[in-house]
Amino acid sequence: MQQRSSLKARLIASPYVAWSALFIVAPMFFVVYYAFTDAAGAFTLANIKALSNYTEIFVRSITFGLIATVICLLIAYPFAYILSQSGANVQRTMILLIMLPMWMNFLIRTYSWMALLQDTGLINAILGKLGIGPFHMINTGGAVILGMIYNFLPYMILPIYSILTKLDRSLIEAAEDLGSNRFNVIKKVVIPLSMPGVVSGITMVFVPSVSTFYISQKLGGGAFDLIGDTIERQFQQAYNYNLGASLSLVLMVLILVCMAVMHRFTDNDEGGGMVI
C-alpha cells in the first residue's frame, strides 16, 4: 500500500521534475558552461577575468536595488498593517487596486513613466501651469529607482499583508492584557511574527530590482546601465554568450550571497526558528 501510493506520488510529481530539469537545471548548466568557455568552446577563465571591468556596474545595480528595496519596505509595511486592520470591503478594494496595474504589461507601464517624467511631460506641464518648475526628473538615477519601486511595490505589500491578516489576534490581545502599550505590541509581537512575509517581500523586490534591464534604459536614458542591461547587450548586440553567461553567473552568486546574509540577519533578530 505504502509503495503504491509513493509510486503514485512520484508519477504525479514527474511532470514537475521534468519541467524543473528542462527549464531550471539545464539552463543553469548552460550558463556555467558558457561562462567558462570561449567562442570556440575551449575552457577559459578570460570571461571571469573580464568581470573586473564591470565592478562599477555591479556596485550601481546593487546600490539601486538596495535603495529600492528599503523604500518599498518603508512604504509597504505600514500600508499592509493598516490594510490588515481595515474592514473586509476596504481590504478587498485596496488589494484589487494594488493588483490592477499588474494586469497591464510592465514594459508599457514603464514606458508611460517616461511620458510622465519628461521635461515636456505631464507632471512638468501641470507644475508649469501652477507656476512651479520645471524639474528635471527623467534620465536620472532617481527616476530609475522610482521605476523599480513603482513596478515592484506590490510584491512587497502582498506577502506582508497576507501574513499580517493571518496573525493570531489572541497573541496581540494577550500582550495588551499583560500591559504592553500599542507601540510595544507592534515592536515585540507584530513585527517579529511578520518577519517571514518581510523576508519574502524583500526577496521578491530585491532580486528583480538588481537584475532588471528595461527600467534603466527607458527612465535612465541609457546613461545608468545596470547589470541586466549589460547582460542583455552581450546576447543581443555583442553576440558574446560567454561574457553574458559569466556576468549572469556572478549576478546569481551575488544575489544568493545577499539573500543568505539577509536570512542570517532575520534569524538572529528573531532568535531562530523562522520558517521560509
Partner: peptide
C-alpha cells in the same frame, strides 16, 4: 574582424558604465 568587434563591444560597455 572579430578582435576589433570584441574590442569595440567592450569599449562600448566601458563608455556605458561610466
Amino acid at each position: 574582424p572579430q578582435p576589433s568587434l570584441d574590442l569595440m563591444n567592450s569599449l562600448w560597455d566601458s563608455v556605458k558604465s561610466e
